[in-house]
């Protein structure tokens, strides 16, 4: 199995404060990976470092390339639609994606937009939290690439929207693509995941197979995750 993402000796500081230190991670192709950690642990920062939207020290490779331009090209990440004016309409955002990303498939986008009931004429400012997350999923997965990053797509959305978002991920993530999906609440996505990665104590503390946790430890992913935060709990064994 080939490597989708590799991170070596990653260090990142902001205002002289250490956000991430000595980060190591290798993800194989074709996996759905949960990126877990408390609010403010550095999950979003890690995603921005992967795409080069934030600059740290160390080596990050997407596929076999560490070049920032290549990393951006090979990674689909919508970063909460940062940079779009609130009065932008959905169809204008879609046009932008079509122009900027050669791998953006309008057919795939339209299929998802129909499934998720997105109204192209709506302005970003008029979107509910759930609709905005649906739009982000459709835009992100409409690109056909090797690595997808989804940053907390379930935070603050209702359960119907959540189900639709989960179905979209399962339906439209291409074979052999790797998807890294962050959440601070693992229970609702546990059945989706091949592996979990936990960001804790300013580093990538844990990387484990989901069924490995169930098989070898006989515990729920959520319980395992919580045990990492108990004093004297599971050690940060990689």
């Amino acid at each position: 199995m080939s490597t989708a993402l590799s991170i070596q000796n990653l260090n990142y500081k902001r205002n002289r404060q250490v956000i991430l230190h000595d980060g190591q991670l290798t993800l194989s192709t074709g996996k759905i990976v949960g990126l877990l950690g408390e609010n403010g642990a550095g999950k979003t920062t890690l995603m921005r470092l992967i795409t080069g939207n934030a600059q740290g020290q160390g080596v990050i490779k997407v596929g076999d390339s560490s070049d920032v331009m290549h990393r951006k090209q090979k990674t689909s990440f919508s970063d909460h639609l940062k940079g779009f004016d609130k009065s932008t309409k959905i169809n204008q955002v879609v046009k932008f994606y079509q122009t900027v990303y050669p791998d953006f498939s309008n057919d795939r986008y339209q299929e998802m937009a129909t499934f998720l009931q997105l109204d192209a004429s709506q302005k970003l400012t008029a979107l509910s939290k759930g609709t905005k997350e649906k739009l982000i999923i459709a835009l992100t997965l409409a690109r056909q690439t090797e690595l997808y990053l989804l940053d907390e797509p379930f935070s603050g959305i209702d359960s119907m929207s959540r189900k639709q978002v989960i179905s979209s991920i399962l339906k439209w993530t291409p074979d052999n693509a790797t998807l890294l999906i962050s959440d601070h609440y693992v229970h609702e996505i546990a059945s989706l995941l091949d592996e979990i990665v936990v960001v804790k104590d300013q580093t990538i503390a844990v990387h484990k197979g989901a069924d490995e946790i169930r098989d070898q430890l006989g515990v729920e992913i959520e319980d395992y995750y919580e045990s990492l935060y108990e004093v004297g709990g599971a050690a940060d064994d990689k």
């Binding site: 996996k31 989960i166 399962l170 339906k171 074979d175 059945s191 995941l193 091949d194 069924d211």
Partner: peptide, 10 residues
């Protein structure tokens, strides 16, 4: 995978 809400690999 979609029907059972689990991923394709599983």
């Amino acid at each position: 995978a979609v029907d059972l809400t689990v991923n394709v690999n599983t």
